[in-house]
Design a protein around this nucleic acid. Sequence first.
DNA 1: CTTGACCCTCCCGCCGCTGGAAGGTCTACC
DNA 2: GGTAGACCTTCCAGCGGCGGGAGGGTCAAG
Lengths: 143, 143
Amino acid sequence: MAHALTIGQVAQAAGVSARTIRYYEQVGVLPAPGRTTAGYRQYTPQGVGRLIFVRRARALGLSLQNVRALSAALDGPRRGVRPRLRVLVRAQLSAVRRQRVELQVLQGQLAQVLRRLRSPRLRVPARRDQSGRCRCLDTDRGA
Amino acid sequence: MAHALTIGQVAQAAGVSARTIRYYEQVGVLPAPGRTTAGYRQYTPQGVGRLIFVRRARALGLSLQNVRALSAALDGPRRGVRPRLRVLVRAQLSAVRRQRVELQVLQGQLAQVLRRLRSPRLRVPARRDQSGRCRCLDTDRGA
DNA sequence: CTTGACCCTCCCGCCGCTGGAAGGTCTACC
DNA sequence: GGTAGACCTTCCAGCGGCGGGAGGGTCAAG
């Protein structure tokens, strides 16, 4: 093998730690590479490409479980990889949209709490109501 | 104690599981309540208020570590609770803003990948480049 | 007395890694 | 040949924020 790469070289090339690569292999996200007689892992350029694919998928927010499925599909017959990927990316896209909405709501609540905390006087009658609750963080009207 | 509440009642009142309450106590987020002779936890209305405070803080995204600090401050002298809370909420607010930006970028990348996956032909010359990389998920131009 | 709904403590699992320990191997230099 | 230091190997353990389940005690109703 002229172009065999060590795990450290692959790690640097892909911008991940060697530990992460071993972990990916352990959980089946990356296929097990060849080994030298001393037991060192030997990677091919294809192996590097696979790792980069995995990192891109992770960067898009796909779970390791899903990435494992995709990677396994890439190992077998290539048919059906794109449809699966499309499904996953679509799901991820809607999940991200949901998260954005949630974060928007959260930002509004935080801003409201911050306004209340900035003003020296509280907008609520007492710091603790009759049930002993600290109302500093309330964001809902009345209720 | 006329108004002593069991952990289950408190859990239902605050909308959390009894397990979560026990966990909060274990990690120091909630003070340890009294116990009956049989070892059952006995909560006061103040205890319920504290739990609701903790849940609100969590709902705002504060970490349990920060919530623990706030809760400890509420147990001691009340001075300084509001400034600390203000600092934490401000930090959380900027963290949320950062996350929103990141999610926005991510959404754009996902949409781009999806567009590419939808079209039957790829915009890249080959499915795998010479290094064996699957480029389905690329989002950057050239590079 | 029994049933069923509570309560208790304990340890393990999830995700996506990261850290450390303890040891083998490779390369460079003397 | 020796040795230093950088690399590699495996295994075990931990993070946050809980949840599941085991294995047992307690309490009120029938």
